[in-house]
């Protein structure tokens, strides 16, 4: 098993921490992982991305040009990474703020209204956890209990009381993600 993921969006959407949570969960599940952020000028311009790799084997290159899954949270990220998905791969996009639908027909596409859901939960900070839930529904590469263990590692102890809220957000994400297109 090897899953190569790019997560991209605006700074502040929790893009980098999503990648870290996925990786930490992978560690808890005994997988090899690598996480590589963009740290260049684009970070200062408001968009951020990170590459997360979860694998059964040692990871050779942490830097990739094509991906099994792209999780895009804004239009510039969709424009940049839609073409970088391997044929038969997966695109997950946040519906809010997208001005055009994905073009590709040879990939699986899922849409998630994570922002709206986070508003319903009265906590927009759990936005990224809703997206993670959606991703894990489509690609159950990590068990939920390991995600929780991962969260315990990532979050400082003073935030541990928020873990049940995050778990709830994951469940909501699993529920609301919808299939938009099946690969031809």
């Amino acid at each position: 098993m090897s899953e190569e993921i790019i997560i991209a969006g605006f700074g502040g959407q929790g893009v980098l921490s999503m990648g870290q949570i996925i990786c930490y969960s992978g560690v808890m599940q005994g997988k090899e992982v690598s996480w590589m952020p963009s740290y260049g000028p684009e970070m200062r311009g408001g968009t951020a991305n990170c590459t997360a790799i979860i694998s059964d084997e040692q990871i050779s290159s942490p830097v990739l040009t094509e991906f099994d899954t792209a999780i895009v949270l804004n239009q510039p990220s969709m424009d940049k990474f839609e073409d970088a998905i391997k044929p038969g791969g997966l695109l997950i996009y946040e519906e809010n703020g997208m001005t055009r639908k994905p073009r590709r027909k040879d990939i699986n596409i899922c849409a998630i209204a994570a922002y709206d859901e986070s508003v319903k939960m009265n906590n927009t900070k759990v936005f990224n956890m809703i997206v993670i839930g959606g991703f894990l529904k489509v690609k159950p590469i990590i068990e939920l209990e390991n995600v929780i263990k991962g969260l315990e590692k990532v979050l400082p102890e003073r935030y541990h009381h928020l873990i049940p809220l995050n778990e709830e957000a994951i469940h909501r994400g699993m529920k609301i993600i919808k299939e938009a297109h099946q690969a031809n």
């Binding site: 690598s34 740290y39 942490p62």
Partner: peptide
């Protein structure tokens, strides 16, 4: 280098 410095691994 910038890759090894910035990336996270086990």
């Amino acid at each position: 280098d910038g890759i090894i410095g910035q990336m996270m691994e086990k």
